[in-house]
Nucleic acid binder design. Structure first.
Length: 435
RNA sequence: UCCUCGAUAGCUCAAUGGUAGAGCAUUCGGCUGUUAACCGAAGGGUUGUAGGUUCGAAUCCUACUCGAGGAGCCA
């Protein structure tokens, strides 16, 4: 190895033009042309094209590059130069190289692959440029989510992942044995704990993994996904919707500001994201059903909106649309009913544009002890399981509201992905537990 | 759980009843500015499994296995 050169990450190369630096990484691809070779090197922070000229390197270095296979690990030294043809692109004029390992035949070739094969190779697929871009957008969204709430005096509260076998009743949960206390389940939502925390700390957010054992096989579903769930004391439904739209505007605009390179790699039409500015349209369930009627969609009033219905409604708008006040029958027991129309719940779903479906579900919560008790009984839930939750309505009950945002659905929408499976580094789906 | 579709080389696909092919990957050769580089050559197959129809099946029929994405459920 050369001495006197410093290790630099590829993302910082442009600060070292004219200097000789060392890159520690892997061979992403190799093109050659007689006495010239063009190795593409990646180090996790980016990709740079190296230039190896036979007359500029030792015979050993030349032969090393001739035998390098895709994804071989290699430390390369050379001078950083501007690309002779491309603007704002830099190259490494290779002078020396140290091969750590010549990789075995790499299964992921530069050509197309099927989704099942790539899913099997997820541990290697993550090395590709496209996955690099997606994971960096995900990272930006996670940071934007935390910053949004932290800047607004919300307290992060981590809800338990192991929960008693009670919950909301409807969805199918993952169950496991919990010592001598019977069955436990993996959490499907931190909301109930979020409510307790909001009454303790004012404004809080829960941000962690959630689990659904539903046998869903669609491009919008994972069995394990991350959800952020803000919960605010002294908030009503309108304040909840105000916060939700400010939140979505913030995280989308910040991703546009910081991750343009990644969105470009993903060939995302960013003009669709630039539209994501307040105010978002707000329509009631009744108005939503009128849109369906006008569009000639067969729909029975009183039913929940199905995924195809949501797509029709969201395609009417160029930004997310908030649909509020659904019939109480299709919504959860803990949602407060509208005092002006007790047939509907004070709830809101936010539908992402471009057919990405529901990214937010939220509501104002039932804060009256008697009303909540009645609701629990009506839903044939065990009152003793909800004793602590009912306590919140006995000791200083206040109006409060919150919502949940699915991280992976949001990443899929912002990145413009066909399938949610690419948004998680190691996605869990009904037919996939490995790698 | 239901509906629809699919399974051929390591990978992506072609072959629609008559000798299983191509591109990528791999190996070898060529090329001094390449951009999923290109050009030439080689190796690589129990066509998901089991049975049936037929002179003859990757192809038609039946069952099974595995998978895909849509419904339901939801974020």
């Amino acid at each position: 190895m050369s001495h006197g050169t410093s290790h630099v990450y590829i993302s910082h190369l442009k600060e070292h033009v004219g200097q000789t630096v060392t890159i520690k990484g892997w061979l992403y691809n190799l093109r050659s042309s007689g006495k010239l070779m063009f190795p593409e090197l990646r180090d996790g922070t980016g990709i740079v094209q190296g230039v190896v000229s036979k007359k500029a390197v030792s015979e050993k270095v030349w032969q090393d590059f001739e035998t390098l296979t895709q994804e071989s690990s290699v430390i390369v030294t050379g001078e950083v130069t501007k690309h002779p043809k491309l603007e704002n692109t830099f190259e490494l004029q290779v002078s020396d190289a140290e091969v750590l390992q010549v990789a075995q035949e790499y299964p992921i070739t530069p050509k197309e692959h099927g989704v099942e094969f790539l899913a099997d190779q997820r541990h290697l697929w993550l090395r590709s440029k496209r996955q690099w871009a997606i994971m960096r957008v995900r990272h930006e969204l996670v940071n934007a989510i935390r910053d949004f709430f932290n800047e607004r005096d919300f307290l992060l509260v981590d809800s338990p992942i192991l929960t008693p076998n009670a919950a909301e009743g409807t969805s199918t949960l993952f169950e496991l044995d919990y010592f001598d206390l019977g069955k436990a389940t993996l959490t499907q939502s931190g909301q109930l704990y979020g409510e307790a925390s909001a009454l303790a700390f004012g404004k809080i957010y829960v941000f962690g993994p959630t689990f659904r054992a539903e046998k869903s096989k669609t491009r919008r579903h994972l069995t394990e996904f991350w959800m952020v769930e803000p919960e605010m004391a002294y908030y009503n439904l309108e304040m909840n919707m105000d916060l939700a739209e400010e939140f979505i505007e913030y995280i989308v605009q910040r991703t546009l500001k910081n991750r343009m390179e990644e969105l470009k790699i993903l060939e995302r039409d960013v003009s669709k994201l630039e539209n994501i500015k307040r105010p978002f349209p707000r329509i009631s369930y009744d108005e939503a059903t009128k849109i369906l009627e006008r569009k000639g969609v067969a729909f029975e009033y009183g039913n929940d909106l199905g995924a195809p219905d949501e797509t029709v409604i969201s395609s009417e708008f160029d930004r997310p649309v908030m649909v509020h006040r659904y019939p109480k029958e299709v919504k959860a027991f803990y949602m407060k009913r509208d005092p002006e129309n007790p047939a509907v719940a004070l709830c809101v779903d936010m539908l992402a544009p471009e057919g990405y479906g529901e990214i937010i579900g939220g509501s104002q919560r039932e804060d009256d002890y008697e009303a909540l008790l009645t609701r629990i009984k009506e839903n044939e839930l065990k009152v003793e399981d909800f004793a602590w939750y009912l306590d919140l309505r006995k000791f200083g009950s206040v109006p409060h509201a919150g919502f949940g945002l699915g991280l992976e659905r949001t990443v899929a929408w912002v990145c413009g992905l066909e399938h949610i499976r690419e948004t998680a580094p190691f996605p869990r789906m009904i037919h996939r537990l490995t790698p």
